[in-house]
Design a binder for these strands. Structure first.
Lengths: 171, 171
DNA sequence: ATGATTTATCTTGACGTCGAGATACTCTAG
DNA sequence: CTAGAGTATCTCGACGTCAAGATAAATCAT
């Protein structure tokens, strides 16, 4: 039983503690799922930091990015936007208000539905989101540096398996 | 070019849109990292639901679980708790207040440091967190059902690689 | 046509979190 | 022994989110 330093992470500590305290439980699922949760948390922080250099908040990027990838003319209804970003309608009203105040989007009346509104990216908004996206990908590539392309593909496939049930359930 | 239904997820849609709009960017990192973020989001929802049947909020579980796995006498300082749960001190004060009001923890003066406080799990708190943890693991096992043990181990190892840099940087 | 239902968006109040700062105590260098 | 630095916790105000409900317009059945 040497003390050779193994490459452990916080989740290993976590799991070890649970095994000690609750030897009756099978805590194997944490090996994958706790790491997913913690990694996501760290990614959020890293993203916030990357966007900060562009004067953007994460939530701002989320909305601008949805509009950007919709393609020209970069318009989506609030309803579509909240499906893309997984937030509630009240939140989206708020977000669009503040993005419009900053001049990154504008609200237009929907010509085909007088209840409706179209949110459109301004040129300034497009520039911001394009720069932020390029920067984000650079940072993310660095994070993945340790993994071979093949490993990345394997993980991506496995994660797709895990996400799909959730994607399906919301029709 | 048949229309054979491929097994795609929302992230495939996302990536496809970005490739169309920004063919100049290498969006490969999203295959892994966007899936991690989205899966974490879904997991949060699933956890909230599982805890709801025990009358617990997710944030309550996080605190109780940290105390539980610390082992008897189930005591930690607010400082240790906020390192375990990755929240700020103001948040932890708030959480402990509310957990104490519900009778799931109590605040004790630290006998060795008069600035300090120890937060201790009550028997009721321990029962709650034990039941919730067992339930959570059952749900998580179901989520992972589609993956072989070997695949799970491979993913866990890869995720550990990705998380470690973050774990290290905070000393 | 007309009323009922559905859909799209906005409004409001409560909640949990954060970050900065306040307070009280401990530790360390001299 | 003491001044200053460090540490532990709590306070407070601002913020973003959510959930429920309000409003208005479109759609459907009769």
């Amino acid at each position: 039983m040497g003390t050779l330093e193994r490459m452990e992470d916080e989740v290993d500590r976590l799991i070890e503690a649970w095994r000690r305290e609750r030897p009756d439980l099978d805590v194997a699922p944490m090996e994958v799922l706790s790491r997913v949760s913690r990694l996501a948390r760290h990614l959020d922080r890293a993203r916030s930091q990357a966007f900060g250099t562009h004067g953007l908040e994460s939530w701002e990027f989320d909305v601008l990015a949805a509009l950007r990838r919709a393609g020209t003319p970069y318009q989506l209804s609030p309803g579509k936007l909240l499906k893309e970003t997984l937030v509630t309608s009240g939140t989206m009203t708020n977000r669009v208000d503040r993005l419009a105040a900053r001049g990154l989007v504008e609200r237009l009346p929907d010509p085909h539905d007088r209840r409706g509104v179209l949110v459109q990216l301004t040129p300034a908004g497009r520039d911001k989101v394009d720069a932020a996206m390029a920067d984000l990908l650079t940072h993310e590539r660095a994070l993945l540096g340790g993994l071979s392309d093949g490993d990345q593909q394997k993980i991506a496939r496995a994660l797709r398996e895990l996400v799909r049930p959730f994607d399906l359930e919301k029709h």
